[in-house]
Amino acid sequence: MRLVVLSGAGISAESGIPTFRDAQTGLWARFDAEHLATEAAFRADPALVWGWYRWRAAMVAAAMPNAAHRDVAALADEDGHALTVVTQNVDDLHERGGARDVLHLHGRLLASRCIGCSARVTPDPILAPPLPPAGGTRESPPACAACGAAFRPDVVWFGESLPTDAWRAAEAAVNACDLLVVVGTSSLVWPAAGLPDRALHAGTPVLEINPQPTPLSARATAHWPMTATAGLARLRAHVREGAGDVLRPWAG
């Protein structure tokens, strides 16, 4: 069976990583995350935005994959199915959980590049010591040795296009899959929110795992109202029992 897992912040929330829409804390409490995650905000106050991303990167680096990340990887490694993970998350928990084919639609938090010439350096400055204190702090981004411009997080900010290669690979994976599993995503962020409809229009079953209903829930082949860890454990049991028959009902 060819599986695609489309994941969002909910799958990493159980590892202690706040979702993007959660209230900010500490130094960042008075800021709206969506206002910090723009090129305009970075150019207006690079120390503020770089410091926020350094704080978030430190949280991600300290977090551990949870059972849902491991169960996603086990669908391929233990259960023998072809698996592509398409994630809207900027963390690396899918990879650390064992998944090998992971497409990051919104970039990677634990990497950075020059905003001017896209140069990269090793070690990456977004994780270079000293890491920010627990509550975070303002911090000026380093300057690029090649062009003098500032380093920025290697993520997709609001108003920016998705990485072309990752998006095309995601579309191709969804076109070819036998089951699309949508887990932990609000189904509000486009164009990723359109991938389930691509599958449904092709007659491919779409299973949504989310404790709360989303705009996708009414259209999905099935909606399981549960956490990512509970849902992925249940999915693995269903896949084993189904003997590869993805056309059988995926209802609860």
Score class of each variant (00 low, 15 high):
residue 252 G to L: 13
residue 51 G to T: 00
residue 217 S to R: 03
residue 131 L to G: 12
residue 213 P to E: 09
residue 74 A to E: 07
residue 175 N to F: 12
residue 12 S to F: 04
residue 226 M to T: 07
residue 170 A to T: 03
residue 137 T to Q: 14
residue 13 A to L: 11
residue 237 A to E: 15
residue 242 G to H: 08
residue 58 A to L: 10
residue 70 R to A: 14
residue 15 S to M: 04
residue 74 A to F: 12
residue 152 R to V: 05
residue 7 S to M: 02
residue 243 A to D: 14
residue 218 A to P: 11
residue 84 T to A: 10
residue 233 A to H: 13
residue 229 T to K: 12
residue 236 R to S: 11
residue 163 P to F: 07
residue 36 L to Q: 01
residue 88 Q to N: 05
residue 4 V to T: 05
residue 132 P to H: 05
residue 243 A to C: 10
residue 201 H to W: 06
residue 210 N to C: 00
residue 99 A to S: 15
residue 96 R to F: 10
residue 86 V to N: 04
residue 188 L to P: 10
residue 105 L to H: 04
residue 235 L to H: 00
residue 238 H to L: 13
residue 222 A to H: 05
residue 120 R to H: 15
residue 252 G to W: 11
residue 95 E to D: 08
residue 154 D to L: 07
residue 209 I to S: 03
residue 39 E to T: 14
residue 108 R to N: 12
residue 49 V to M: 08
residue 120 R to K: 15
residue 72 V to P: 04
residue 19 T to N: 01
residue 228 A to V: 10
residue 192 A to M: 02
residue 205 P to C: 09
residue 34 E to R: 13
residue 104 H to S: 03
residue 152 R to A: 11
residue 248 R to T: 15
residue 113 R to Q: 13
residue 55 W to E: 06
residue 19 T to G: 11
residue 187 S to K: 03
residue 60 V to D: 13
residue 248 R to E: 15
residue 250 W to S: 05
residue 211 P to E: 07
residue 214 T to Q: 01
residue 225 P to H: 02
residue 74 A to D: 11
residue 26 G to K: 01
residue 33 A to P: 06
residue 135 G to H: 03
residue 65 P to T: 06
residue 155 V to Y: 07
residue 84 T to I: 13
residue 131 L to W: 08
residue 252 G to E: 14
residue 80 G to D: 09
residue 153 P to Y: 07
residue 208 E to P: 00
residue 84 T to H: 05
residue 200 L to E: 09
residue 194 G to K: 00
residue 19 T to A: 04
residue 124 D to I: 01
residue 200 L to D: 04
residue 163 P to I: 10
residue 160 E to M: 06
residue 21 R to K: 08
residue 144 C to D: 13
residue 166 A to H: 04
residue 172 A to D: 12
residue 84 T to W: 03
residue 186 S to A: 07
residue 158 F to Y: 06
residue 27 L to Q: 11
residue 23 A to I: 07
residue 204 T to M: 01
residue 50 W to G: 00
residue 247 L to D: 14
residue 2 R to I: 07
residue 74 A to I: 09
residue 233 A to N: 12
